[in-house]
């Protein structure tokens, strides 16, 4: 599957793939969605794809403090000129995308399997993806946190969460079993 500059070659046990952001019009105004939902026999995978231009094309990674950004970062879509993006804004955006998608599907009775959420951020090295993952994890209700805080939960909002670049995705046995990932040339 090709989407937003990425190519995913999903494993054979894939049940269904939805390019979910194309359904954004189904959501209410102000709601956001993840890019892809991949259904596997025992779980759903929510995929959010971000791609930042590299340094050679006047790039400064928005995760790095408050550097000026010239990028196709979706956060900046409505800003007239390249603006300031901070790790907090990106983290909140990733959280909202997950929750809005989760809510929409929950209301429609589609959350019948555990969900893992992966954000693929090309253009950022592993140090930056680690920092972003830690930041977003703090504001997401991950299963392990829910268990820790209250053992009466019998329904979990989010099982796993990861932020990776393409290299880390392909090196990880945990993610590789869902699909291999590459960048469109």
């Amino acid at each position: 599957m090709e989407k937003d500059g990425y190519v995913f070659d999903f494993s054979d046990d894939i049940v269904d793939i939805i390019s979910f952001d194309e359904n954004e019009k189904l959501l209410c105004d102000g709601m956001k969605s993840v890019d892809i939902i991949a259904e596997f026999p025992n779980e759903y995978l929510f995929l959010e794809l971000k791609k930042y231009k590299d340094r050679n094309i006047d790039f400064k990674c928005p995760l790095w403090k408050e550097a000026k950004v010239v990028s196709n970062c979706p956060l900046l879509k409505n800003e007239k000129i390249s603006g300031l993006a901070s790790i907090n804004r990106i983290a909140k955006d990733l959280r909202q995308k997950y929750f809005d998608t989760f809510l929409y599907r929950h209301i429609n009775g589609r959350n019948d399997k555990p969900i893992s959420y992966i954000c693929v951020v090309e253009g950022c090295d592993s140090a930056l993806t680690t920092r972003l993952k830690d930041k977003v994890s703090m504001i997401l209700p991950l299963k392990r946190k829910m268990i820790k805080e209250n053992d009466e939960w019998n329904y979990f909002i989010l099982k796993n969460f990861a932020v990776v670049n393409v290299k880390s995705w392909n090196k990880s046995p945990q993610l590789n079993r869902y699909a291999s990932c590459s960048i469109v040339d």
Binding site: S126, T130, N160, V164, S172, Q174
Partner: peptide, 18 residues
């Protein structure tokens, strides 16, 4: 230095992913 961070990401995923 970057290789070390790459390795950290891989190990963290292996540790945390359920």
């Amino acid at each position: 230095i970057n290789d070390t961070f790459d390795s950290l990401v891989g190990r963290a995923l292996g540790f945390e992913w359920e």
